Simulated assay, not measured.
Amino acid sequence: MKTLIIGGTGTVGTQVVKYMLQAKQPIRLLTTSVHKAARLPVYVDPYVANLDEPETLTKAFVGIDKVFLLNPQGHTEVEQAINAVNAAQKAGVSKIVYQSIHRVRQGAHIPHFQTKIAIEEAIMASGLNYTFVCPNNFYQNDFWFKDAVSAYGIYPQPYGEAGLSRVDVRDIAEAAVKALFNSEYDGLSIPLAGPEALTGEDTAAILSEELGFKVNYGGNDLAAWAAQAKLILPAWIVDDWVQMYQFFQEKGLVATASDLQLLTHVLGRAPRSYAAFVREYAPVFQPESVTV
């Protein structure tokens, strides 16, 4: 039987697919796009369906034993996930691994944290066997800021000085795949975090050290950040993220020793560091005139 990957064409999902293929596990990938389906790796079974249209999901779950669920932030996020959970129940799926957020209940006032909590509760109430994988802020989010870093020497993500235990997306994917096939993690929330709590200034300092030119932290002015962000993102997302960054600035989101102990056990090694991430992807952040 196959594993159904929902959300398999995004930042995390593509890495989940990669680890599944490396493990030689048969997978089906649900996508809303015929064009994306046509571009999937040859060993992936594509299925075009829509989480907003539950009638399209029934056949997608035929022959499915396990499900990885990652549905994007959106106005129907909870309903989409519940549609997937209902289809999984009807199909007799043995396990669902859902991507939530690290220590999500600490930020329960943040809209997209609220949706993750609602989905977790729906999965727990469903009677399905489950594991939640719960990542902190992604290192790979910094690819969005590569132009600010390379052209202006500014790191603009305004997460402040309280500290974030940021994480490499590849660690998230590897942990998710291990959770799918290891009953040891049934019923658990696995924290996905990096080995150190980083401030905005720490991040800029690491970028400076690893890239060989000065990078400054852009600061904590959320009104200024929101004004710029609304030029390229929907206002409702920016307003949500302002609440998230305010929470990060005031409280941080820092992994405990027990969080890191569990994650190290799941991975079989320490999680990747931010410095190692920047070192590996240094060419992405270099000015165009610099040859690396």
Rank of each mutant, 00 (worst) to 15 (best):
Y185P: 02
I190W: 05
P195R: 02
V290G: 05
Y159R: 07
L260I: 05
F248T: 02
V238C: 02
N50E: 11
G13Q: 04
E280Q: 15
P26D: 09
V292P: 04
R103T: 00
A176M: 14
G187I: 09
G127H: 13
D52G: 14
P72A: 08
P191C: 00
G74Q: 08
T131R: 10
A38C: 03
S258Q: 15
E210N: 10
L29I: 07
Q25E: 13
D147M: 13
G153S: 07
P283T: 15
E201K: 12
I96K: 06
Q106A: 11
D221P: 04
K116I: 04
H75V: 14
A255N: 07
S289W: 14
A179M: 04
F213L: 09
E280N: 12
L211N: 03
I110N: 04
G194R: 03
S33R: 09
I5T: 02
Y185T: 05
A162P: 02
Y130E: 07
D239A: 10
H112T: 12
A205Y: 00
H112L: 05
A193P: 02
V215H: 03
Q106K: 12
G13M: 04
P26Y: 11
H102E: 01
Y245P: 03
A87L: 10
G194Y: 00
I206R: 01
D221N: 15
R279Y: 04
S273V: 08
A227W: 02
H109E: 13
S208T: 15
Q286I: 10
